[in-house]
Simulated assay, not measured.
Amino acid sequence: MKIYITAGTFDFLTKIANKYPDEMMVTMVNENGALLLHETKGKSKFNVPRKYEVLESVGDIQKESFAVMNHIPVTDEGRPVFEHQCKIQVQKTANVQGLRALRLLSPISSTTYVILTVWENEAYYQRWQNSDLFIKAGTGLDAQQTIFASAPYVSKYSITK
């Protein structure tokens, strides 16, 4: 399974999604703009997408949700350790209340992994952020600083209808 992501204006991305009603596509927006996410076993419908292989998958990405993307640049040497630790955390996180979907995305042409979580709403995400499970997950990766190529960052989105 692959995930392709492209950016653009909300109206433009909505037109692309409407052009392919049989494909699993969701439009996500935040204060900085809009993204269109396409999950498929086939080829991308986008001209210049960011490309990811789905390493772990939990649940279904649903419209009218709250999405969080953790972007984590990982060194080539650190990839096996990072993937192993993340796969363990995915299993521990799979049944968190309010979580609709989770994807561990391996970059096809960059060094930045994405951990995508999709929540019923932002309140569930914030509750999870304050949980022991979340805190313990972060400390496991912090101990391996040498696997990171640069500082990770988070982006948050609303998934539209």
Rank of each mutant, 00 (worst) to 15 (best):
M1S: 14
M1H: 14
K2Y: 15
K2H: 10
K2L: 09
Y4G: 00
T6Y: 00
T6I: 13
T9V: 08
D11I: 14
F12C: 00
F12W: 09
I16V: 03
I16H: 12
K19C: 08
P21G: 07
D22V: 12
E23Y: 06
M24N: 15
M25C: 01
M25P: 00
M25Y: 01
E31F: 13
G33A: 03
G33H: 00
G33Y: 09
H38Q: 10
S44L: 10
K45V: 13
F46T: 03
V48K: 14
P49N: 12
P49W: 06
R50A: 14
E53S: 14
L55A: 12
E56R: 10
E56I: 02
G59A: 11
I61S: 00
Q62F: 07
Q62D: 07
F66R: 05
H71T: 05
I72V: 12
I72M: 09
P73C: 01
T75Q: 02
G78E: 12
P80S: 07
E83V: 11
H84C: 06
H84A: 12
H84E: 14
C86L: 10
C86P: 09
K87I: 11
K87Y: 11
I88G: 10
Q89A: 05
Q89P: 05
V90Y: 01
Q91E: 14
K92C: 10
T93V: 01
T93K: 05
A94D: 00
A94L: 08
N95L: 02
N95T: 07
V96K: 01
G98L: 10
R103F: 01
L105G: 00
P107K: 02
P107C: 06
I108M: 10
S109Y: 09
S109R: 03
S109E: 15
S109L: 02
S110E: 07
T112Y: 11
T112I: 06
Y113S: 07
V114K: 11
V118M: 03
V118T: 15
W119E: 08
E120N: 04
N121L: 00
E122T: 10
E122K: 13
Y124M: 06
Y125C: 07
Q126F: 14
W128H: 11
W128K: 07
N130S: 11
N130I: 00
N130V: 00
S131T: 02
D132I: 13
A137M: 05
G138I: 06
G140V: 06
D142A: 07
D142R: 09
Q144I: 09
T146Q: 08
T146F: 04
F148G: 02
A149K: 13
S150P: 03
V154E: 04
V154L: 12
V154I: 13
Y157G: 03
I159T: 12
